[in-house]
Design a protein around this nucleic acid. Structure first.
Lengths: 221, 221
DNA sequence: TAGATTGTTAATCGATTAACAATC
DNA sequence: TAGATTGTTAATCGATTAACAATC
C-alpha cells in the first residue's frame, strides 16, 4: 500500500463497488482487468479508477491492466474484510432483526454475535440464531467478548441515551441507523446510515422526472 | 423558493437534519432560530446553513434569525413531505419487513401500502398490516394504485432481474437496498442505500482509532 | 516497432469557508 | 446609535477530469 497517497472518504465508498465488479470479472475467468472495464461497469471515469487503484498500492501493467486477485486482496485488506470482527446489535426491533439476518455482512468483516434490548419479552429470545440479552449486561459482554462495534437500531427517542450506554460499556464504533445526530466523546467513531437523506434524494429525483418529463435528467445509478 | 439558486445534492441531504433541529427548537417554544444555533447543533458552519436556507427561499431577519415555521414549511415542501406518496416494497424478506414497519417514513412523505414477493409461502400473508402480493400482480397494482416508487429489498441475485420487472410494471423510482448497481433506462430514478460503503467508512474510522490512539482523529458525527 | 494501457501532472469543477457589507 | 445577525462576493479547498508522457 502506498503510504504517501491519501485515501479519501469518497474513495473508501467506491472500494466495495470495485470489489463487486472484480468478483464478477473473476467469475468470468479473467485474471486481469483494465481500468476502462471497471469504470464502464460503474459509470466512472477510467482515470478515477486508476487513481484509486494506485492509492490502494496496486500497480498495473501497460497493455494488460491490473491483476484481479491482487486488487481483491488489496481492497479486502484495506477494508478489513480479511479478518472478521464481532459486532453487537443494540435494539432488537424490526430493523435490528433484519440486520441480524442479513448475511451479506458476514463476508464483509462483520460478524454479528448477539443482540441487546430492554424489553423483557425479547430478552432470552433469539433472532436469526443470535441471542437477545438484557441491555444491563452490555458492559459485561462487551468486555468478555472484546467487542468494539455496535449497531444502533433502537427507536428515535432512545437513540442518544442508548449511545451513551454503549460508550460507557466500552463500544468504540457505533453504526447508527437512527435518524439522530449522536453526540459522543471525541474518541468514538459514529457512522450514520441516513435513510431520510437517501429518501430525500430519491424523492427529489422522482419529482424532477415527473415535473419535467423527457429532459433525461434522471440519475442513472 | 428562489429559482435562481441551485439546490445541490449535499444540500438536499442536509435538509432532513435541519428539519430535526427545527422540530427540537419548536418543542422548546422558540419561534425563531439563528443560523448559528442550527450550525452548532449539527457541527456545520453558520455560513453554510445560511446559504442553504437562502436556497430554500426563506429570508431571515438580521438580529432575529429565521422563522421556525417558515423553515419547516419550506423544507417539507421541497422534500415533498407535505403530500404523501404511496409506495410498494418489492421483496418481503427481513429487510423488506423491517422497512414496512418503520414508522418514521410515514411522516416523511412515504406511505408503504403493500409488499410483493415470489414466495408462495409469503403471498397472502401480511407484514405490519401490509398485504404481500404475488410479484405477478405488480403491473396490475402499480396501475390501479398509481404507485411510482418501489423499495427493492430482494436478495442480491434477484436484484437486477427484479428491477427490470419493476420498470416494466411502471415503477419510476427505485429505492435500492441491495448491494447491486442496477442498470435501468434513462428515465428511471435509482437511489441506492449503500450499506457496504457505510460499513467501510465505519471500519476505516475504527481502525484509525485503534491503530493511532489518542490522535483524536475520530469523526464526531 | 506500434499501440494499448498505465501513471502523473495540471486544469477544472463544485462545494465549503472566509471576509465583509447590508440591515434591522 | 450600537451590535447582532443576515446575505453576498471572493477565496479556498478537495475531488474529479483532462492531457499527455511513460511503459510494456
Amino acid at each position: 500500500m502506498n503510504p504517501n497517497q491519501v485515501i479519501s472518504l469518497p474513495m473508501i465508498k467506491r472500494l466495495p463497488l470495485y470489489f463487486r465488479v472484480l468478483e464478477k470479472v473473476e467469475e468470468q475467468g479473467a485474471l486481469t482487468v483494465s481500468s476502462a472495464v471497471i469504470a464502464e461497469e460503474l459509470g466512472l471515469e477510467p482515470v478515477q479508477v486508476r487513481k484509486d487503484l494506485a492509492a490502494l498500492g496496486v500497480v498495473g501493467q501497460p497493455r494488460i491492466g491490473f491483476e484481479v486477485s491482487k486488487l481483491m486482496g488489496a481492497i479486502r485488506a484495506l477494508l478489513g474484510w480479511d479478518n472478521s470482527r464481532d459486532v453487537f446489535i443494540i435494539g432488537a426491533g424490526n430493523l435490528g432483526a433484519a440486520l441480524a439476518g442479513y448475511n451479506v455482512f458476514k463476508s464483509h468483516g462483520m460478524n454479528i454475535v448477539a443482540a441487546f434490548d430492554t424489553d423483557p419479552e425479547k430478552i432470552g429470545q433469539e433472532i436469526h440464531g443470535k441471542m437477545i440479552f438484557d441491555m444491563e449486561r452490555l458492559w459485561e459482554l462487551v468486555h468478555r467478548m472484546h467487542v468494539h462495534i455496535g449497531i444502533l437500531t433502537v427507536p428515535v427517542d432512545a437513540a442518544q441515551r442508548t449511545a451513551e450506554l454503549m460508550v460507557n460499556a466500552g463500544i468504540r464504533a457505533i453504526w447508527n441507523f437512527t435518524p439522530v445526530k449522536l453526540t459522543v466523546p471525541e474518541n468514538i467513531v459514529v457512522e450514520r446510515v441516513d435513510l431520510l437523506a437517501s429518501l430525500a434524494v430519491l424523492t427529489r429525483g422522482l419529482r424532477k422526472l415527473l415535473d419535467v418529463p423527457g429532459t433525461g435528467e434522471a440519475k442513472i445509478e
